[in-house]
Nucleic acid binder design. Structure first.
Lengths: 130, 130
DNA sequence: GGAACCTTGACACGCTCGTGGTAAGGTTGG
DNA sequence: CCAACCTTACCACGAGCGTGTCAAGGTTCC
């Protein structure tokens, strides 16, 4: 009990390489406690975390940096908010723009504006006929 | 009205370079409609989206790929779930492990196990005394 | 005190990201 | 018809990711 594995032992039981365990630590995703001498000590919790992390990366083919970003989203509400807001297609439309016009655009775009993009005004603005 | 800018015009009004607009499109974050001939046509919505995206990246110093990942989280519930679950420190502890034991570990870790990590058992398992 | 660990730091390598170019070829407007 | 635009497809390049390996130096155990 009260077992703590050294980096190489942890590597063996988790499937990571010792090298990668150090790297993972640098990304801030799994940081083991240190012995007074500085040795990394991986407890059951860390080991489990490492195994599931491994599974996660493999299953969805994402990178450590992606998970790192997700973590950042988690403790940076501002970022989370800004990103979410941007993602939901600019939910809060900029009031300074008439709005009805730009809305049509979205609509048309999602439908078949492609073909209907016929009669447009000249100038540098692109125009074309079917 | 009903204006659609070509890539270079859009570049000018959004601050991106034409080159980057194509790149941004490849990431799937802002994809303009295409004219019958294949020309990219940026409408007000896209332009706005590009401007706010630019602001977002600069303000938080994140990359297009990060936003791309956030988008992926948004439409891949499985991924979102797996990531969130992993992030909240393995909320659902593995029932197959006694639990009380690993919990102590977390506790001790967050406190001052460092110094208390004195008397341990020998073998390959790390051990040390103060 | 020496073998067997651990630590950090560095070099390396292939790959992706974020950029910029350039070349070869279609469109379009006047 | 031709200049001015657009398109895709490449080359390039520095920075970072994901890995490995090696070197120089502490720890620990017996």
């Amino acid at each position: 009990m009260t077992d703590a594995l050294t980096i190489h032992e942890a590597a063996e039981t988790t499937g990571w390489s010792a090298r990668m365990l150090r790297y993972v630590e640098r990304t801030g995703l799994v940081a083991p406690v240190r012995s007074p001498a500085g040795y990394r000590l991986y407890g059951p919790a860390e080991l489990q975390r490492l195994r599931t992390l491994r599974e996660l990366l493999a299953r969805f083919d994402v990178g450590l940096s992606d998970i790192g970003f997700a973590a950042r989203l988690d403790d940076e509400p501002d970022l989370r908010g800004a990103v979410d807001e941007w993602l939901e297609g600019q939910a809060q439309r900029p009031e300074h723009v008439p709005a009805p016009d730009w809305l049509r655009w979205e609509q048309e775009k999602h439908e078949a504006l492609l073909a209907a993009a016929a009669t447009l005004s000249p100038s540098t603005t692109v125009t074309e006929a079917a």
